[in-house]
């Protein structure tokens, strides 16, 4: 499989109030084409910094990041990197530029110098994919948080990226908004084969990911399938991460002596394990 993102011995330091802070220690990670990778970590674990590093918004202090073979340190490649690996930020209000929905979606391809007729096509397709076509003439402030975030996703899609990084893209949404955005992202991953790097601190959101990477204080604490990672309940809780409620419940039951495996992720799975005959 082709590597979408290759991170080699990455280190990132910055100065705050004349004090040097190391946000990322020595991090190496490969993300493959078409993968859905969930990155979780507590506040200050370096997960948002990682997103900005991959997009070339900030530069590594040490080590290298390759996005489809292009080094983010190479200034000639920076626009192509940003086109290939788009990023959706946390606050929907602060990433919408234009006053009309479809013009905002067009912002990316306009910057890339795409022909107007082609922009038209891409905007319509992108809005279709996030199911926001009927809102194309609206003003952004008339939309709900979830809708705005879907517009932000469409804005990235219109640049035709192969990989999208979601930097806590659902953190500011209400539960229904979160659900609609997440469903949209999963669909993109399955139907478009877009590589998804999903950064979050809600573990429930990444139980269906192909791989989960847990960051703690700028380093990878563990990684593996959701099942493998969520089986290590106590370790996760020691870095202030809450496992999904169902996983926690199963963990407690097991501790009390029930013969069920660790790393149960859904209600159905728990039911199956508790009542094997049903």
């Amino acid at each position: 499989m082709q590597k979408a993102i290759e991170i080699k011995n990455l280190q990132y330091k910055y100065d705050r109030d004349e004090e040097e802070i190391t946000a990322i220690y020595d991090l190496s990670l490969d993300i493959y084409e078409g993968e859905f990778v969930g990155i979780i970590g507590h506040n200050g674990s370096g997960k948002s910094t990682l997103a900005k590093l991959i997009n070339g918004i900030i530069m590594p202090t040490k080590g290298d990041i390759f996005v489809y073979g292009m080094n983010t340190k190479d200034e000639n490649m920076i626009w192509e990197i940003r086109q290939k690996a788009g990023i959706v930020f946390q606050n929907p209000d602060n990433q919408i530029v234009a006053t009309i929905v479809e013009e905002d979606v067009a912002f990316g391809p306009e910057n890339l110098g795409v022909e107007p007729s082609e922009i038209r096509k891409r905007v319509d397709e992108a809005l279709e994919k996030v199911r926001m076509s009927e809102f194309k003439d609206r003003k952004p402030h008339q939309l709900s948080g979830g809708q705005k975030q879907r517009i932000a996703i469409a804005g990235i899609l219109a640049m035709e990226p192969r990989c999208i990084i979601f930097d806590e893209a659902t953190a500011m949404l209400d539960p229904s908004g979160r659900e609609e955005v997440l469903a949209c992202i999963k669909q993109l991953n399955k139907e478009n084969n877009t590589t998804v790097v999903y950064i979050t601190h809600y573990m429930e959101e990444i139980v269906e990911a192909d791989r989960v990477v847990v960051l703690n204080q700028g380093d990878i604490l563990m990684q593996g399938t959701p099942k493998e990672v969520f089986a290590r309940v106590e370790e996760l809780q020691s870095v202030f991460l809450d496992v999904p409620n169902i996983t926690n419940l199963a963990h407690q039951l097991k501790k009390e002596g029930l013969a069920i495996p660790e790393g149960i992720l859904t209600v159905d799975e728990l039911v199956k394990n508790l009542c094997p005959s049903s």
Binding site: W79, R82, E103, M159
Partner: peptide
């Protein structure tokens, strides 16, 4: 992040 780099080579919808 959305490749904005001023007005040069920019097209319009």
């Amino acid at each position: 992040a959305r490749c904005y780099r001023g007005g040069n080579n920019r097209t319009r919808l």
